[in-house]
Design a protein around this nucleic acid. Structure first.
Length: 281
DNA sequence: ATGGCTGTTATCCG
DNA sequence: CCGGATAACAGCCA
C-alpha cells in the first residue's frame, strides 16, 4: 500500500501520538524485519529511548529518538504490506505482527504479511533518496538532471527513489496519465515543457492523495473499535473509494475518464503499467 | 488447483 | 554504467 501519500497520512496520525513517549519494551517477533543492527543490539538501543518526533522521508518513517542525551534515528519502511498502529497494551499480537514496542499503556505494532517492511537504526538508507516531490528542491532542473541520458522508460525511472523520493507503481501511472506522457517514453527524450508538466502532475497527484487520505478515519478495520488508532485496514469500502479515484491504475479495459477509449495494461520491469494509449503520447 | 498476480527494494547478472 | 531479472514473502483470484 504505502507510497508517499499513505506514509504521509500515517505520519501525521502517529507523530502527535508518539512524541514524548518512551519505549519500555521491544519485542522482535520476526528478526528478519530488523535490517540493522542485529536484533539484540537493536532491542538494547531502543529500550528506554524516547520518541522526539516522527517525520517522513520518501516512503520512510523517520523517528527521531533520544536516549541518555544521545540522539539517533529509527527508520521504518512498510514495504508492500506493512501496517503500523497503536493499540492498548493488553492487545495480543496478530498473525503477522513482526515488531512490537511497549509504550506504557499502549503499544506500537508493525504488522507485515509479506515481510518486505523493515526497521533499521542505520541512517544511510535515506541518504540516496532523491528530492521530496512536494518540497522546493524538486525543480524541473533537478528532474531533468536525474533523467538525463537514460534510455529507461519514464514509468520505470520514476520508481527509482533516487530520482524522486516516494513514488511507487500507482502514482507513477497516475502522474504520467495526468501529464499525458506515454509511460514507454525513454526518459532522455522528454523535453523541458513535458518535464514541467510531469513535475506538476507528480505534485498534484500526490497532494490530492494526501488530501483524500487525510479525510478518512484511520480506525477502519480496527480489532479494537474503541482505540481509534488502527491504521491501514483493507475494508472493502476503502478499496472501492480508492479505486474510484484512480484515473488509470488497475482500470485495464475500462474506459478512459478523459477520452473514453480503453485503458491498457502492459508490463515494464516486471510491474504492471496502466495507461491510455490515446491520451498519453 | 496451479499459476499468476499484488502498492517495494536490494542484489545479481549480462 | 545501465537495465532487466530475480529473490525476499504470503495471500488472493481465475
Amino acid at each position: 500500500m504505502p507510497e508517499l501519500p499513505e506514509v504521509e497520512v500515517l505520519v501525521r496520525h502517529l507523530a502527535p501520538r508518539l512524541a514524548g513517549k518512551w519505549i519500555r519494551r521491544v519485542n522482535v517477533l520476526d528478526p528478519r524485519s530488523i535490517r540493522a543492527p542485529a536484533p539484540a543490539p537493536f532491542r538494547r538501543a531502543l529500550t528506554n529511548a524516547r520518541f522526539q518526533s516522527v517525520q517522513r522521508r520518501g516512503k520512510y518513517l523517520v523517528c527521531k529518538m533520544q536516549k541518555h542525551r544521545r540522539a539517533f534515528s529509527l527508520l521504518m519502511h512498510l514495504g508492500m504490506t506493512g501496517r503500523l498502529y497503536l493499540t492498548r497494551r493488553r492487545e495480543s499480537p496478530t498473525n503477522h505482527a513482526r515488531v512490537v514496542f511497549g509504550l506504557g499503556q499502549e503499544q506500537l505494532v508493525l504488522e507485515d504479511m509479506r515481510r518486505f517492511g523493515r526497521m533499521t537504526l542505520d541512517p544511510s538508507a535515506i541518504l540516496r533518496l532523491g528530492p521530496e516531490p512536494l518540497e522546493t528542491g524538486f525543480t524541473v532542473d533537478a528532474l531533468s538532471r536525474a533523467l538525463a541520458g537514460s534510455r529507461q522508460a519514464i514509468k520505470v525511472r520514476l520508481l527509482d527513489q533516487s530520482v524522486v523520493a516516494g513514488i511507487g507503481n500507482i502514482y507513477s501511472c497516475e502522474a504520467l496519465f495526468l501529464a499525458r506522457i506515454d509511460p514507454r517514453t525513454p526518459s532522455r527524450n522528454l523535453d523541458t515543457p513535458t518535464l514541467r508538466r510531469l513535475r506538476a502532475a507528480i505534485r498534484r497527484v500526490l497532494s490530492r492523495a494526501i488530501r483524500l487520505g487525510s479525510t478518512m478515519p484511520l480506525n477502519f478495520g480496527t480489532p479494537d473499535p474503541i482505540s481509534n488508532q488502527f491504521y491501514f485496514g483493507h475494508s472493502p469500502e476503502h478499496r472501492t473509494d480508492q479505486a474510484e479515484r484512480f484515473q488509470v491504475y488497475d482500470r485495464e479495459g475500462q474506459s478512459c475518464r478523459r477520452c473514453k477509449s480503453s485503458v491498457r495494461r502492459i508490463v515494464q520491469a516486471g510491474r504492471s503499467t496502466f495507461f491510455c494509449p490515446e491520451c498519453q503520447t
